[in-house]
């Protein structure tokens, strides 16, 4: 799959080491040229470049923050009217645009089972506007709206379960440290009809206060500490875990990132407990 044509070009505007751009590159390799992207307000609105340029070699429609899914549904309907059943319509949305402001449009599309792909590249905060917390931001995280002396007190929302509850045909998690797994899942999703949800964990060195060189390493640790397990859900109920985590302590992951530097041992412990509990729940579903 790697040898497929590059549909994302150099010259884009992302920070050095940006996971969101790696995610885009793999996704487009898997999706191919016959793809239309819908990008609501987020980092990627800027990364692609200003008018009249684009770093992406597929058509892109920039749209309002809360309208990723609804714009995609509309474009799909338009294409169908014109007899085009082949082109993939994909919403490419940040975590703020998915977990928070865009959840209504997404839920609507999923409930109708509109024939779209929906990608959430998750950097766990509103990065484009300067690192504000979102409901995807994990417990204990520093952001500009949750400062170190008052870090985020709530855990990350479980978006995959919300999507599974819609009983859509396919939902999957993936991340940049496992590009083959990512491209396999996206190719598989592409061949399915209906609403398909792909949750991509995308490290952000700038917002996470981490060295740019560690983006892949951090993503790999997220999987091996069970913080971000890689799995797929078919029909909203058939769970399948794709990568066996090495079961490393969460501290190995947390200590690489400045956004967690203030955490006390107790808070690290709480994180570990939450992670273990969530993992057990997931394993139970996968065994069902």
């Amino acid at each position: 799959m790697y040898e497929r044509r590059e549909l994302m070009y150099a010259g884009h505007q992302a920070c050095a080491g940006c996971g969101a751009t790696m995610s885009m590159r793999y996704a487009l390799k898997a999706l191919g040229e016959k793809t239309i992207l819908v990008i609501p307000a987020c980092c990627w609105s800027v990364l692609a470049g200003p008018f009249p340029y684009s770093a992406l070699q597929v058509p892109v429609i920039h749209t309002a923050f809360e309208t990723g899914a609804s714009t995609a549904s509309g474009i799909k309907a338009g294409l169908e009217m014109r007899g085009d059943t082949e082109t993939t319509v994909a919403a490419w949305v940040g975590d703020g645009g998915t977990f928070d402001i865009g959840i209504q449009a997404l839920s609507g599309a999923a409930e109708r089972n509109d024939d779209i792909m929906y990608f959430c590249y998750d950097n766990e905060a509103y990065m484009n506007t300067g690192i504000q917390r979102s409901s995807a931001t994990p417990f204990g995280t520093w952001t500009t709206t949750t400062p170190a002396n008052h870090p985020k007190g709530q855990p990350k929302k479980n978006m995959m379960e919300i999507m599974a509850a819609h009983r859509i045909p396919y939902a999957a998690t993936c991340t940049v440290a496992f590009p083959e797994d990512m491209m396999r899942k996206i190719s598989k999703a592409k061949a399915i009809r209906g609403t398909r949800f792909i949750h991509i964990y995308s490290p952000c060195p700038t917002g996470w206060k981490a060295p740019s060189s560690l983006s892949v390493k951090i993503a790999r640790l997220a999987v091996h500490t069970k913080i971000f397990p890689l799995y797929e859900v078919e029909g909203g109920e058939r769970y399948n875990i794709n990568v066996d985590p090495k079961n490393l302590p969460v501290d190995e992951y947390l200590r690489l990132q400045g956004r967690f530097a203030h955490l006390t041992d107790d808070e690290v412990h709480t994180t570990q407990e939450t992670v273990d509990r969530e993992w057990e729940r997931l394993v139970k579903k996968a065994l069902d």
Binding site: H12, Q13, A16, G49, F51, P52, Y53, S54, Q57, V60
Partner: peptide, 27 residues
């Protein structure tokens, strides 16, 4: 790409070229 006259501008903002000119190596 430089639009010299108003008539050169498209009706909708669409793409005319890639970002390859943007030499991000200078960062």
């Amino acid at each position: 790409i430089i639009f010299k006259r108003e008539e050169d501008m498209p009706y909708l903002p669409i793409t005319f070229g890639s970002m390859a000119w943007n030499k991000t190596g200078t960062w």
